[in-house]
Design a protein around this nucleic acid. Structure first.
Lengths: 221, 221
DNA sequence: ATCTGATTTGAACGAATGTTCAATCAAGTT
DNA sequence: AACTTGATTGAACATTCGTTCAAATCAGAT
């Protein structure tokens, strides 16, 4: 008991401290990738940012590329899970479901802007196999939108004759938020999300009542 | 006379051959930047692609960065001139003017895809002063759209309450075409342009008759 | 044939890169 | 106190990078 207790305690301490070091490297790498891009970020800068030796970063990650892969896969899988949960929680109405997808897509791209931006920007920096891994995840995200749009087209609440282009444009504009959003800017994330829901529905040829609360939303000082 | 003739002839020959060499370097650089990105492209690869020695590339351009700058500024200023001409040729109607802007924006991003893609992707690779130069040009492009949208809002043909977001989304989705377009793909550039005009008008809350020819457009092999 | 000036090259420079590795440290176990 | 084991380091590796430069090449003019 005592033996096992101390053993697990040690293991927890080690794993948390090890995880802390790992997280520090990830965080420093993310900041640098976000600010200057993958190829313009050296392992020395990453190690400096994390406050450790260059060789210590290699204790956690076998290569610089693996750090990038970890960041990109992490945020993308998280996004998928968030979108699926939000869609399911929105009920059966395609309009509500699409609004939930757009809203949460925008929200994550503001809340985790750096990760999202890197994931969208550094695809080419990956090697073929790893790139395909991320591309598949992104295709899955597009499919989430496409299925909901198809549902709305079947039910008649969406009327666009350009489904593919509309879906692509919606995902693109939501993704691009990570490229220009500045926290403390003119619009709060929720206001941006509301606007994007309206824009997306406009592209889909939806002419029913707005699913957006739209109560002035004067937030942001 | 003869002296001057031969002199200008020589100068023309030199300038054209020099221009040819310069163009070869630019072209090779563009292809490499497009395929692998700026920081992952070495001057050696560029020189190899152009069929010359490394040191000869420096005969035309003082640095790798200057090559990138030349490409980015070139396509962006061209885009501005094309958009302004198309807008003016479209007459006074805001719907027609916006359609012309969208259509030509999409067209250039398919016809000169590599340049457009690089110009949109490698902003961070520039140094501060040069980056600002390109940012100003891109701001000017956004202003072209914004002015037409404002015109349409004033005349009542556009009804959106999210002007800024709509303009940003429209420019973004048109720009993103350079990221996924494949010549010989499912849709011909003109069909894409038509679809994007409709999507843009949907975002702006335009509910009048479609300015798109929309005659089946079965193009694409 | 010589000269001139633009064009083209090979070889080298120093700096920075991603990565490796043997060695040290710290702490917990026996 | 000796031992194990994960955490951490400094120094070095070979390679590649952007850039430079003196020298060679070439075509047209004299």
């Amino acid at each position: 008991m005592t033996v096992q207790a101390t053993r697990t305690a040690r293991r927890r301490d080690q794993s948390t401290s090890a995880a802390a070091g790992r997280e520090a490297v990830l965080k420093a790498a993310l900041e640098a990738f976000f600010a200057h891009g993958f190829h313009d970020t050296s392992m020395r800068k990453i190690a400096d940012g994390a406050g450790t030796a260059i060789s210590h970063a290699y204790y956690y990650f076998p290569s610089k590329l693996e750090i990038l892969r970890t960041l990109m896969i992490g945020v993308t899988t998280d996004l998928i899970h968030i979108l699926e949960a939000a869609r399911d929680a929105a009920g059966p109405d395609p309009v509500q479901r699409l609004a939930a997808l757009v809203r949460n897509h925008v929200r994550l791209h503001t809340e985790r802007q750096a990760e999202s931006f890197v994931a969208n920007t550094e695809l080419r920096s990956l090697s073929a196999t790893e790139r395909q891994e991320v591309v598949d995840l992104r295709d899955h995200i597009a499919t989430l939108f496409k299925d909901v749009v198809d549902d709305g087209l079947r039910q008649g609440c969406f009327t666009t004759t350009h489904r593919d282009e509309a879906v692509l444009a919606i995902v693109t504009m939501c993704t691009a938020v990570a490229g220009w959003y500045r926290s403390g800017g003119a619009k709060a994330p929720e206001a941006i999300a509301d606007a994007y829901v309206t824009l997306a529905l406009g592209m889909l040829g939806y002419h029913g009542p707005s699913p957006v609360t739209d109560q002035a939303t004067p937030q942001a000082r």
